[in-house]
Design a binder for these strands. Structure first.
Length: 313
DNA sequence: TGCCAGGGAGTGT
DNA sequence: ACACTCCATGGC
């Protein structure tokens, strides 16, 4: 049985705050609409943050739907991972998620990482107007599109090309163990500098095949500043894509994955074999245009649905 | 054994 | 624009 820190009910109530992520929109209409939907309740304690009524946040699906490769679940059901050198342990029971983290790290790292400022109920309600998407949304309910570190996402999806998920995970694990900084809880993802200062021979240990030269070029271009991921993050999607594909081995698919999973670009729509199949089989070849602004979110639900069911229902 | 896996580069039409 | 091959490696 997982052992939670015991806190009194009164203390929990005292610390409880309501999260109002859309309050900064001055537009009255938007605020009213958002106010009608259920808000995520966030409780801040000394060494843990608890999310209540997290109906649109499922840890298992979010971590296993194919967007991130480094989270592991231990035998007690605790998810563990390292982002920006910060370690997190997380546990979910029903609609309640406990993040074992300080308040400072929660707001500086995890709030953005888990995309808690975005209202998924709104997005999902919009997407579910399409009957096909509605099926995929129910199937993968609770998936959130993470905001990972851009360099990690870039490398992860370079490694992903023409590859399968178990092997992608293995290569990334070896990348971290051999080139990442050791922390008391595991290895951090390597810096661009560390990889840029390696060579193809040293990268052999990854057993990443033809992708090693792509990784090396990505690291060198990021380390030298020729590719500025933070700047690209602020650019519009077409400008950003044009920059990213300058990296050897990065095409539209990898560029769009990088933008969707680490740059908050929810209009990015990575088309892999599964999505191509899904769009062909389920939509007759074209994805609904009116959903363009959040089609990246739809993409992740579709990917999870298609890959899990093999589309043979 | 042969085929496939969250693609992309290189070449040719 | 589109078709085709090759690229490393491992699981089935």
């Amino acid at each position: 049985m997982p052992c939670f820190t015991q806190k009194s009910y009164q203390q929990r109530q005292k610390n409880k705050i309501l999260c109002q992520p859309f309050l900064y929109f001055s537009n009255f209409k938007i605020y009213v609409i958002i106010s009608l939907v259920k808000k995520l309740k966030i409780e801040i304690n000394d060494n843990e943050v608890i999310l209540y009524e997290a109906e649109y946040f499922n840890l298992d699906r979010t971590f296993t739907c194919g967007q991130a490769f480094r989270w592991v679940k231990d035998e007690y059901g605790f998810w563990q991972g390292i982002v920006k050198g910060k370690y997190l342990k997380a546990y979910q029971e029903g609609d309640t998620i406990t993040l074992y983290t300080s308040k400072e790290d929660f707001y500086s790292v995890w709030y953005n990482y888990f995309d808690l400022g975005t209202n998924y109920e709104e997005i999902c309600k919009l997407l579910s107007k399409d009957p096909v998407l509605n099926t995929a949304l129910n199937f993968g309910k609770g998936i959130r599109v993470l905001n990972q570190e851009p360099f990690e996402a870039l490398c992860s999806f370079i490694i992903s090309q023409n590859n399968n998920i178990p092997r992608i995970t293995g290569i990334i694990e070896r990348l971290c163990e051999n080139f990442g900084e050791k922390t008391p809880f595991g290895y951090a993802f390597p810096t661009p500098e560390r990889i840029a200062n390696s060579n193809l021979e040293e990268l052999n240990i990854l057993r990443s095949g033809f992708r090693a030269k792509y990784l090396l070029d990505a690291a060198k271009k990021v380390y030298s500043g020729e590719i500025d991921l933070e700047k690209i993050k602020e650019q519009d999607i077409d400008t950003a894509r044009t920059e990213l594909v300058k990296i050897y081995g990065v095409g539209k698919k990898v560029a769009d994955c990088t933008m969707l999973f680490s740059m908050k670009k929810k209009e990015a729509f990575p088309e892999d074999v599964w999505i191509k199949r899904a769009v062909k089989v389920l939509f007759g070849g074209e994805f609904p245009r009116e959903l363009d602004s959040v089609k990246g979110v739809a993409q992740q639900f579709l990917f999870y649905y298609a890959r899990t069911t093999k589309l043979d229902i």
